[in-house]
Design a protein around this nucleic acid. Structure first.
Lengths: 246, 246
DNA sequence: GCAAAAGTGTTGGGATTACACCCATGG
DNA sequence: CCATGGGTGTAATCCCAACACTTTTGC
């Protein structure tokens, strides 16, 4: 039996979210193709992290592998959210050129299963691996390959739905964080603003958000109390219909 | 270019939910394979409604087609919720036998994209099309083909998540329904019970649940007021972060 | 008249909203 | 001493959970 053949029909794409305390960002890979003769750029845009699936590999494994290959990170929060199988999804002209340039057959139907993942933005070394990576604000338009634009927008929707009832925002924050950082994160994800006092009142009811005996350092203002998320306390106290809506 | 070839690698499966005012049910297809010599049943269990995807067909179209072929119904509520691509998902012995018996190669990897759909149970004529269909209570164990058991349990989870914030329960009810029927539906979906008065108080805040000038007929007790769901009112009055949790 | 489900109100506690000022630090 | 973000309280309203009895119909 053959091993480790990349299946021509199945792929996975990862919408990698990160938070720099300012904006919710998406990790994109630069894609360029230059005309061999003129040197002019034929294709210059961005793609999601993605790849075909090995024949003996589960989809979840493939997504984790793609992420590992790109960032060197393991045990990342990954959530499958949608599969895109439109028969025309690879038929834009620049996509055809690009597929041909890397030796793939654009006639070949590829169905991609999309995941979103949440990582601590600073854990990624942007320079690594020869591939040009960029963190791009999720709400700022950018030229994208294939159907990756719609994939990102569905990923954001899926993240919003999930984070309302599950404490997954902490995957985007350092272990120790301030309440203002947490608030800003939720504001960025939902594109809204919250009242500081009301937000904190809500937080104070969540026993799994535990204050540390530690304060922010080196800031030019009153240093903030640091908090951490206790998964233990969360698991023990969560109700059946737990609502994390902020 | 070839047209309408069933792709050997992609399939869709539909978890069809129905409600008979007693239980939440799933529509299953009987699967039998008898030994040609002895006549003894080699395989006797149930499968989801599913099929391979045509080469020129989107996944959503394939799911709608599968549903149409089985029930004759169109414009059904359909929601993609997960894609199952475990390389071992077709390797149980009875599944191999069955695949071979219908001329499919069990070595062939099939990734299936799963949908759940909500239909008015009485709209389906169980007898049609020569295929044996059964409505089976979603929480009662039954012997299922492939990985269909896990597909159903994820479908139920996805339905629960969706119905908390979207008024989709009405897809499972007749146009005119009573509040007790609505309550029972939510109780069955979530496996809980609600207080009648509190449930009704919540309902009375929902302007899109409109009482009709009509009552139940032919029941051996006080006949109930009939209600309908107004999509118009819902669309006009829904808030951004609308919460339909019951 | 009886069985069966429909329909209805109150109370206490907790959550949500709206809103404005003083505090600690680094530069 | 000033700029910056950290941190806090109250009142009004709304929502939630808990709880039991009367009404209308068919038989």
């Amino acid at each position: 039996m053959q091993q480790h053949i990349l299946s021509p029909n199945f792929s996975v794409d990862c919408v990698v979210f990160g938070f720099d305390f300012e904006n919710l960002k998406v990790l994109l890979v630069e894609r360029t193709l230059d005309d061999k003769e003129t040197g002019k750029a034929l294709v210059k845009d961005h793609t999601l992290a993605g790849n075909h699936v090995f024949n003996d590999e589960d989809l979840d494994e493939a997504a984790a592998r793609v992420l590992y290959d790109l960032t060197g990170l393991e045990n990342i929060y990954l959530e499958q959210f949608h599969t895109f199988g439109n028969p025309d999804r690879l038929t834009k002209e620049k996509d055809i050129m690009w597929l041909e340039s890397i030796g793939l057959n654009p006639e070949n139907r590829v169905v991609t299963t999309a995941y979103y993942s949440l990582i601590r933005l600073n854990d990624v070394k942007i320079e690594e691996k020869g591939r040009r990576l960029v963190w791009h604000p999720v709400d700022k338009p950018i030229d994208l390959a294939f159907d990756h634009k719609i994939i990102i927008s569905l990923a954001l929707e899926a993240l919003r739905t999930k984070i309302r009832t599950n404490p997954i925002g902490f995957e985007l924050l350092p272990t120790k964080f301030t309440l203002s950082q947490l608030q800003k994160l939720y504001e960025e994800i939902f594109g809204v603003t919250y009242d500081k006092r009301n937000f904190r009142k809500k937080i104070s009811r969540m026993d799994y958000l535990v204050p540390l005996n530690e304060k922010q350092k080196g800031v030019a203002h009153k240093p903030a109390q640091l908090f951490m998320f206790s998964k233990d306390v969360y698991e023990k106290t969560k109700k059946d219909f737990f609502d994390f809506t902020v």
